[in-house]
């Protein structure tokens, strides 16, 4: 119903300009913090006068666009899409699940490890030397040409020993002794390749802070907001009671950079949050 010139286009709207003039003009006042307060008046269906106060912050976002791209964006659709409303249509365009993609040096997928293992086994099998127990030639004992003439010397003992020795070398060492049981986590090469509990997400313990003495009414978002001031936060974990849903009093906050984490640790240790004083320290590596 904008009728700026007061020109009437419809007889039904004739009396509206009068009403509009009866209402006070909108007021715009600038606040100190850069926001604006806009007060407008209107009349609702019941004929009551409504005063609406809005506080607005104006931000200018500048975006450069190639004029040719802008032109193409305005092209009318064609082919079987011709005449359809602008914007993506769910029959052809959908959003996938969020993927966390963080490049890391020395990336290794779980798959390749398995593969390597397989390869190693295959290699070991290939390399495993076949040694005849009769003549020490490179064929099976049963295929030995001297099988009938010479008896196998030292039979079982020597044979089994040989076999074990070969396997040991190939498997990458079950342990120093070879005979005694060595738990998996103590075996050679286990520390680096062993899969950690809790799934595939490698925790970057170096830049993780442990926050204790957290109020039980705290929320993850609050913590994130507090810690994001110091750098990019990758993960906030707030331990919660399963039944009550309240915080248990401690949380972990991971940063991208250790230096950010160090600053955050220094600044947030002793910070008053809700009614408690936070204690912040670097998380110790879980064992």
């Amino acid at each position: 119903m904008s009728n700026p010139a007061g020109r009437t286009t419809d007889w039904a709207e004739d009396d509206e300009p009068d009403l509009a003039t009866a209402l006070p003009q909108p007021q715009i006042t600038k606040n100190k913090d850069g926001t604006e307060t806009v007060v407008t008046y209107s009349i609702n269906e019941k004929g009551q006068k409504i005063k609406r106060t809005q506080r607005i912050r104006r931000t200018v976002i500048k975006k450069r666009e190639n004029p040719r791209v802008a032109e193409r964006r305005a092209w009318p659709k064609m082919g079987i899409e011709a005449g359809r409303a602008p914007g993506p249509h769910p029959d052809t365009t959908t959003l996938g699940e969020n993927i966390i993609f963080r490049p890391v040096a020395g990336f290794k997928s779980g798959n390749t490890e398995e593969k390597e293992k397989d390869d190693k086994k295959a290699d070991a099998l290939k390399k495993m030397q076949i040694k005849c127990r009769i003549c020490s030639g490179d064929h099976f004992t049963t295929k030995c040409p001297f099988r009938d003439t010479m008896a196998p010397e030292g039979e079982a003992g020597a044979g089994a020993g040989d076999g074990m020795g070969g396997e040991d070398g190939a498997e990458g060492g079950l342990g120093a002794g070879g005979s005694s049981y060595v738990p998996p986590h103590l075996r050679k090469g286990a520390g680096a390749t062993g899969e950690r509990m809790g799934g595939k997400y490698e925790r970057d313990d170096l830049a993780t802070l442990r926050v204790t003495n957290v109020s039980e009414f705290a929320e993850e978002d609050e913590l994130r907001a507090m810690f994001e001031r110091f750098g990019r936060v990758t993960r906030v974990f707030l331990a919660k009671d399963r039944e009550t849903g309240r915080a248990k009093g401690f949380a972990f906050v991971s940063f991208v950079d250790r230096s950010d984490a160090a600053i955050a640790c220094e600044k947030m240790d002793g910070y008053g949050f809700h009614h408690l004083i936070l204690r912040v320290e670097f998380a110790k590596k879980s064992t």
Binding site: W75, K77, M78, G79, I80, E81, P86, P88, T92, T93
Partner: peptide, 8 residues
């Protein structure tokens, strides 16, 4: 935005 512009 993944909007389809057209089909040839």
């Amino acid at each position: 935005n993944g909007e389809r512009f057209g089909v040839y």
